[in-house]
Design a protein around this nucleic acid. Structure first.
Lengths: 220, 220
DNA sequence: CGTAAAACTTGAATCCGTTCATTTTTTTAG
DNA sequence: CTAAAAAAATGAACGGATTCAAGTTTTACG
């Protein structure tokens, strides 16, 4: 049934077939989830569009939710990379640096996923934190948290953040905030990105007062 | 089949039967969920123990998750009432008042529910925010948020919190924090209540610096 | 009381994610 | 090149939440 187009050799036939099938499954899933909504996509539909059987899909991903996590991973990895660039030389003042980073997280968040997909991914990570799914999602969360913490550390080393504060604590606190606000955002079908960012800015403004000395807080 | 023990009258037979069935379903669910774990309880088991058919359970609750939300409601309502007592005359200083309120939320949280039940309830509220389930849960969340905000307002009116801060913003921020920390708590099977509260206290300590003037912050 | 409408209960059928015994394809060894 | 072994694909079968057409109980009304 399978025609060997490329002949043997070149990294192994099986390897290439596997990569190809995996890619087809992921592509089909992304398209179908966005077009029809995660809930309405049946594993059978997904398998059919990817040109494989249902069993094969389960050979690559252990649950329907696992496919979603894979898509979330792409999303988060891109965002993390962009974040690293910002960490290399964050803008001033502190408030602007924080806003820039988190706004970018938010702006990028609907690139591959829609709100329903985010809801499902978050729900999975909460309901089943110990499955491969959940672990993977939570690991990504930790990497984001870490990035926020490191931004604060960079700002502190540069002297923009007063030495007294614990960058890890406040960074974690900031991440918690941006996370909860994002949850509220994806929960509400109506809320726009602009509204999400406005709320964030309000709370960031308050937090950033802890971070700078009273003198520099007059800078705005 | 149904023996009319009380005779007709007294608020209608049907009313009483309904209340009784509802009570039996809720009681059975609480017992089974705690004993066998939410996931392992089948609707059929639950129906059998409640002495009704599966269809009848669905007549009272629209999904399995809906039953859980009903149990969460009991939990949260009790906690809200206790909160109101504290609002009537909160202790000093500010940090102690906040700690007292939120510690109570946490301490009470495992009274009816275990961690798995909380995870499911939270996941449901995120994944399906528009179903009766989700709406109910999110309404309760809002009431808790509001209570935290009102505590701050009371403290501010009493002069313990500096007039400059926006009680609604900080209250909301505090609620977000306690919420995220609680999510992390129920996600981890290992974490103890003590550890949860320790983390909270660390973050509360930071936040409370915004709330009091520099003079009073030297009080501790 | 008796009867029709309304409200409610029932459990078999449906739907869908997931599993698994079987079949097919690819690799390896001779 | 061929056969045995290994790896992977397949789709029918399973389990459990949810639905729904049919049956039963309660109420309303003469």
């Amino acid at each position: 049934m399978q025609i060997t187009l490329w002949g043997p050799g070149l990294a192994g036939l099986r390897e290439r077939q596997k990569a190809d099938r995996n890619h087809r499954i992921l592509t089909s899933a992304t398209e179908l989830f966005r077009r029809d909504g995660y809930r309405h996509v049946r594993m059978e539909d997904l398998a059919q569009r990817a040109g494989v059987s249902v069993g094969t899909v389960y050979n690559y991903y252990s649950t329907k939710g696992d496919i979603l996590i894979a898509i979330v991973s792409m999303e988060v990895k891109e965002v993390l990379e962009a974040g690293e660039c910002l960490l290399a030389s964050p803008p001033r003042p502190v408030l602007k640096a924080l806003t820039r980073l988190i706004d970018h997280y938010y702006d990028h968040s609907l690139h591959y996923l829609d709100k329903e997909m985010w809801r499902t991914a978050m729900a999975t990570s909460i309901e089943s934190p110990h499955t491969p799914n959940g672990l993977k999602y939570n690991l990504l969360d930790e990497r984001l948290r870490n990035q926020v913490q490191r931004l604060l550390l960079v700002l502190q080393e540069r002297g923009d953040v007063v030495p007294g504060v614990d960058a890890a604590v406040i960074g974690s606190l900031l991440f918690n905030l941006l996370n909860v606000l994002f949850i509220d955002f994806v929960k509400s079908d109506d809320m726009e990105l602009g509204s999400l960012k406005a709320t964030l800015h309000g709370q960031l403004d308050v937090i950033s007062r802890i971070l700078v000395s009273d003198d520099s807080s007059l800078e705005n």
